[in-house]
Amino acid sequence: MAHEPRTQTHNDERFGPPPNPQGRRLSAQEEAQLPHIIAKPRARYAWAAGIAISAFLEGLKRGKILGRKCVGCGRVLVPPRMFCERCFRPTDEWVELPGTGVVETFSVSYIDTDANRVEEPILVGTIALDGAPPHCGFMHYFGEVSPEELHIGMPVEPVWKPEGERVGSILDIRYFRPRGR
């Protein structure tokens, strides 16, 4: 028996014409005609924060930003790790940073995870903290600043949640704002 061309499937009686290339929701009836399975994966995890990040989170709860110094390369790593990925050796000591820094890069995000337009653009970016080398991995939100004002190199400082609201999370810092505001 000769095989039917593949494209035929869309035009046969069961499925009707091909779906609108512009995209539209299938009607309940159309959906019922398409054999499919809906499943919600149940995957839950409880990740250990580890030695370095546990101490870091505890520090945030107390309003402190802690880093780990590697005497091999002299860098202070923040967020901290117990080993230096460049030197491949254990890091050596805890260092408290003042929390101030400068904007390394940023983006003004106008959409949420579902690609809906958001009313207030979300300002995200990376920060070179004073006392730590550039491009160390510190990321956060920016606030009390307009998208037009925000720029690379702008000095910023953290805005903390009140002590009683801090739980040991990176969100214990609400955002970073232009310094001295």
Binding site: W47, A48, A49, G50, I51, A52, I53, R81, M82, F83, R86, C87, F88
Partner: peptide
């Protein structure tokens, strides 16, 4: 259970031992 370390720290421990055993510097 290994709640005292995260998986990165766990791996680092094993890697340090392997490199020491082989007498090599991974970098």
């Amino acid at each position: 259970l290994t709640p005292e370390v995260n998986w990165k720290e766990l791996t680092f421990q094993a890697a340090v031992r392997a490199y020491e055993d082989a007498g090599i510097d991974p970098r």
